[in-house]
């Protein structure tokens, strides 16, 4: 008995030892940078021409500066609009596809093939994908040529000069990159639903849409919320696609400038105070959203 106890203690030590690399690396490369970002947000610290201003402690002045400037509001709007323009079609298409793929009676052919194809854009380099869209949607690019030959357009549509065109392209890319992923997640959720529920509903004479609305949707709620919030967190981080598409300018007229592009600008111009304050705001937004998921899921367990 005693011997067993000592051996147990001996093993316990290894649990801690095996956690060392993770926490060591996390502390150096994530935790300290995070704390230093917070710290920087309270200091005035930027380059004015060639002269370095600061660092001087200024309290919350950087935050005030951010909120007083209308840019923050505008870039938040841009980010949310482009996220929604991609997310709404994404969730609709994914729900439909997941419902079709999990319905055995539809006997869809090549299910595996379609899943492989629709997930594929998710693994593509966003920077390269965006560059590709920039090339094929340019004024004399292949898409304009194709649309004109098909008689849909009379003259080239200048996608990157119009607000709707640029935002639409960003949304389209986000849609293409994420709808396969969402479909697979929703499918996993749908396949977890007890089949006998559907059968019982059918016996009671429920129509396909009623079954979807009354059984599938409520049972899918947790995974639906998970998809919604993770997508929103991903949306807040939107950077590569609009950055490359507009060459970092957020053109036309700053209408496709996202929050992280704004952060990137401050980082490049070495305006550390503003960059810090913006990072803290973004951190708080994602933390609140993450906590929502966390409580949603732990509450369910209880």
């Amino acid at each position: 008995m005693i011997k067993k106890k000592t051996s147990c203690i001996k093993y316990t030590k290894w649990g801690y030892i095996f956690l060392i690399p993770f926490f060591l690396v996390y502390t150096v490369f994530s935790l300290i940078p995070l704390i230093s970002t917070f710290y920087n947000s309270f200091f005035e610290n930027y380059m004015s021409g060639l002269t370095q201003v600061g660092p001087n402690f200024v309290g919350l002045a950087n935050y005030n500066g951010l909120f007083e400037n209308t840019n923050l509001l505008k870039f938040t709007q841009n980010t949310l609009i482009m996220w929604l323009m991609g997310f709404i079609p994404q969730i609709c298409v994914s729900l439909l596809l997941a419902a079709w793929f999990t319905n055995i009676r539809l006997k869809i052919r090549g299910k595996q093939f379609f899943k492989v194809i629709i997930y594929m854009p998710n693994l593509i380099m966003a920077a390269a994908f965006s560059m590709l869209f920039f090339a094929i949607f340019s004024d004399i690019g292949p898409i304009n040529d194709l649309l004109m030959r098909l008689g849909i357009l009379d003259e080239p549509f200048r996608f990157l000069s119009s607000v709707g065109g640029t935002r639409g392209l960003v949304a389209l890319m986000n849609f293409l990159m994420w709808f396969g992923n969402t479909t697979i997640l929703l499918m996993a959720g749908m396949m977890g639903i007890d089949v006998s529920l559907f059968e019982a509903a059918e016996v009671d004479g429920a129509k396909a849409f009623e079954i979807f609305r009354m059984i599938t949707m409520p049972l899918l709620r947790p995974i639906f919320i998970y998809v919604l919030i993770t997508s929103l967190i991903g949306g807040i981080q939107m950077f590569d696609v609009p950055q490359i598409l507009t060459n970092g300018s957020g053109s036309p007229n700053n209408s496709s400038m996202t929050l992280i592009m704004y952060l990137n600008k401050h980082l490049y111009s070495k305006n550390y105070g503003m960059a810090g304050a913006l990072s803290v705001i973004l951190f708080i937004c994602t933390a609140v959203l993450s906590l929502l998921i966390y409580f949603k899921f732990t509450k369910k367990e209880n």
Binding site: S36, T37, I233, Y272
Partner: peptide, 17 residues
């Protein structure tokens, strides 16, 4: 909890360090 913290929000401190 730290799973959801985006790398971008600590980028400033990271680059500085």
């Amino acid at each position: 909890m730290i799973m959801m913290v985006p790398t971008q929000v600590s980028a400033l401190g990271f680059v500085d360090l």
